[in-house]
Amino acid sequence: MTATSTQIQLVNRPVGWPTADDFRTVTVEYGDLAPGQVRVVNEFVSVDPYMRGRMIDTRSYIPPFALDATMTGGAVGRVVETTVDELPVGTLVSHQYGWRDVVQEDADGFRALPEPPANAASSVYLGVLGMTGLTAYVGLLTIARMQPGDTVFISGAAGAVGTAAGQIAQLKGAKRVIGSAGTPEKVALLTERYGYDAAFDYKDDRSIREQLRDAAPDGIDVYFDNVGGEHLEAALDSFNDGGRAALCGAIAQYNSTTRTPGPSNMANIITRGLTLTGFTIGHYFDQAPAFRGEMGQWFADGKVVHDETVVDGIENSVDAFLGLMRGENVGKMVVRTGS
């Protein structure tokens, strides 16, 4: 049986902020399945900040998107046709064939998932129970080696990774958890919904350094960095001796057309014995079973809350991505491609 797939392709390498003209929407016709293949109708696809880096042709931890080809990324969907017994029709799967509503590929590119918990959509496997949650878990506990009693600062705290990391820090016994966000409404969410002890608006007239000092008068022990730039500089000012940072993202410079200067206080790394470690989650998939066990139980027990910003329609994926880059999301940004 044939099928039609709507897909999003990259046609230009953006300079500065991407625009809708850098992408195009195409339709692809799939023929009958070959042996070993499955056909999946996606329910949700993920748009993520790291995808901006893949839109330029430069050395990185993952190859750039090819021009005039359909982009890829996390997605969840249902098997609707199959040639393999391991993935029968109706199976919920996760995969990396995002930016399209229907995909037909070899079965080894898909991982079967359990049905989502009650009152949760399958998109939860793209967020707090998926790669996003795993990133927060690994960055906080393995990279930054957070210990009970630590004071933790998380930048970009109202995003998908930040909201998960803040809650994990609390559940693991942090003494104080502090977050930054880009609007007063998001700041309020951090303390009222996600349990942060303190939060501040990094777009406020006061400097990030000053606001962080006020929020953490006794200094910080752990920094989870999603932003870079002035946030990293502020953390270097506030670190206690022996502080540890997990450098997860640098969204402040993703659309910059000039080189971003480094922090002016790098000497603090030496004088305070700090450890700053960058990481990408692809090197830590061995920790997924431990993560699924702990986070799955926390989620089932109602100890973890999550929010999503949902955009409907695969044809609106670019708008969702651009909105993400402008900070229009709370929690995980996903595109709902299924009914």
Rank of each mutant, 00 (worst) to 15 (best):
G242Y: 09
S122A: 15
E230D: 14
R244S: 00
G16Y: 08
T309L: 03
D48K: 01
N329K: 10
L190N: 11
R209H: 06
M1E: 13
R244W: 05
L232N: 05
H283W: 12
S264R: 14
D21H: 01
M146E: 05
V124R: 09
V79M: 14
F23W: 00
A320F: 04
D21I: 03
I281P: 04
M146F: 12
L236P: 07
T277R: 06
T70N: 03
L276A: 06
G77T: 11
H306F: 13
P114Q: 13
R59G: 06
E315F: 05
A267V: 10
F321C: 02
V45L: 10
F321Q: 05
G166K: 03
L324K: 03
G149M: 08
A215R: 00
S180E: 04
S123N: 12
A118D: 15
D48Y: 02
S180F: 01
F239T: 05
L171I: 13
D301H: 14
R13F: 09
A300C: 14
R52Y: 09
G166H: 08
R78D: 08
H95F: 10
M1N: 13
G173S: 09
V47S: 00
F285P: 08
D312R: 13
D218E: 15
A188Y: 07
E230W: 00
D101S: 09
T82Q: 08
P63Q: 01
T58W: 09
V334K: 04
A320M: 02
A158Y: 10
Q7E: 15
S264G: 11
V40E: 09
V138C: 03
D214V: 09
F285N: 15
T135I: 13
G282L: 14
D108N: 04
R336C: 12
I220C: 09
I62N: 02
S207F: 11
Y61S: 03
T163Y: 12
L141S: 12
K186P: 10
G53K: 07
G166P: 11
S264C: 01
V38M: 07
D237M: 00
H231P: 06
F321V: 01
S155N: 02
A164D: 04
F321L: 12
I168F: 15
L247W: 02
D225V: 02
D205V: 11
D85C: 01
I314S: 06
R213L: 01
R78H: 15
A250Q: 12
F110R: 10
L10S: 02
T271G: 00
S207R: 08
R111G: 11
E315D: 14
E192H: 12
V161P: 09
F224Q: 08
E185C: 06
A288F: 11
Q253W: 01
L274Y: 01
Y196S: 01
